[in-house]
Computed example of a mutant assay.
Amino acid sequence: MSGFVEGLREVYFEDDGVIPNSGLPVLMYRGVLKDRLGDVEAVFNGNRWLNSWVNGVFGYHHYHSNSHEVLGVVSGEVTVQLGGEQGQAFTLVAGDVVVLPAGTGHKRLEASEDFRIVGAYPGGISYNTRTGEPGEYEQALGEIPQVPLPDTDPVFGVDGPLVRLWRGEN
């Protein structure tokens, strides 16, 4: 199903008892915005992924139990670990976009000096940040299923792959 956008990859992560992750796949769009690096935030905002920021990625495992998140690399490169301690490392470069379903752990392992990334949330939700502290896990398990599916893909809008994939449509 991911073949309708070149460079799209779906990755699933299991609940590890600390980081819940999600039954939805992480979506990686390799190089999708490489020719629009100055417009990444505007692309996300134009597709109603708001409350955006430009910065880096925390160097510790964390996740958002009340919102999905899109991250778009605007300069440099970063290696992130997705899925928690038992997860997998990925190197992202300028132009790459990754969409994290609510509950998906992420952590910066290393980054170039010029690394910058844009983050945004569907509908501009005010996201929380969970770090796997005792007591968070059970609460997060109740919150994650309540997070609505986005109406739009952060890159491709209403007809984008996220909308179809996360809703189980062909």
Rank of each mutant, 00 (worst) to 15 (best):
F115E: 10
A140I: 01
P101C: 05
L141R: 15
G59W: 00
E113P: 15
E110V: 09
V18H: 08
G3P: 07
S65I: 02
V158M: 04
Y137P: 13
A111K: 03
V5Q: 03
L37P: 14
I117A: 07
Y29G: 02
L27C: 09
G56L: 08
I144L: 06
V5D: 03
R164A: 15
L27G: 03
G83A: 08
I19Y: 07
Y29K: 00
I19K: 00
V57A: 10
W53F: 15
D96N: 11
V99S: 06
G103K: 01
E169P: 14
L165T: 10
V118Y: 04
G103N: 02
G135I: 05
G142W: 03
T129I: 14
P101T: 02
G157V: 09
N128S: 13
E133D: 15
T131A: 13
E77F: 12
V78G: 03
G56K: 04
L37W: 12
L109D: 10
V155W: 01
D153E: 10
P25N: 00
V18F: 08
V32E: 08
L27F: 08
P161N: 02
E169W: 14
E69D: 14
L100P: 06
D39H: 10
G95F: 07
T129G: 14
R30A: 11
N47L: 06
P150Q: 01
E113D: 14
L24H: 10
E41V: 12
P101V: 04
E138C: 08
H64Y: 12
G87K: 00
S2Y: 07
G103E: 04
P134A: 05
V57R: 00
P161I: 00
V155F: 03
V70M: 02
V147R: 01
V70L: 03
L8Y: 04
Q81T: 13
A89V: 09
G76Q: 00
Y121E: 10
V155A: 00
P148Y: 06
T129H: 10
V99I: 14
R164I: 03
G84F: 05
R116H: 13
V11E: 11
E143K: 02
G124V: 08
G7M: 05
T131P: 04
L162R: 01
I19F: 14
V93P: 07
V73I: 15
H106W: 01
D39P: 11
D159K: 10
A140K: 00
D159Q: 13
S22F: 11
L149Q: 05
F58A: 14
G3E: 12
V54C: 09
E110H: 09
F44K: 01
D159Y: 12
T104M: 05
S67Y: 03
H62L: 09
D39K: 11
T131W: 01
L165D: 07
E110Y: 12
N51H: 10
V118K: 01
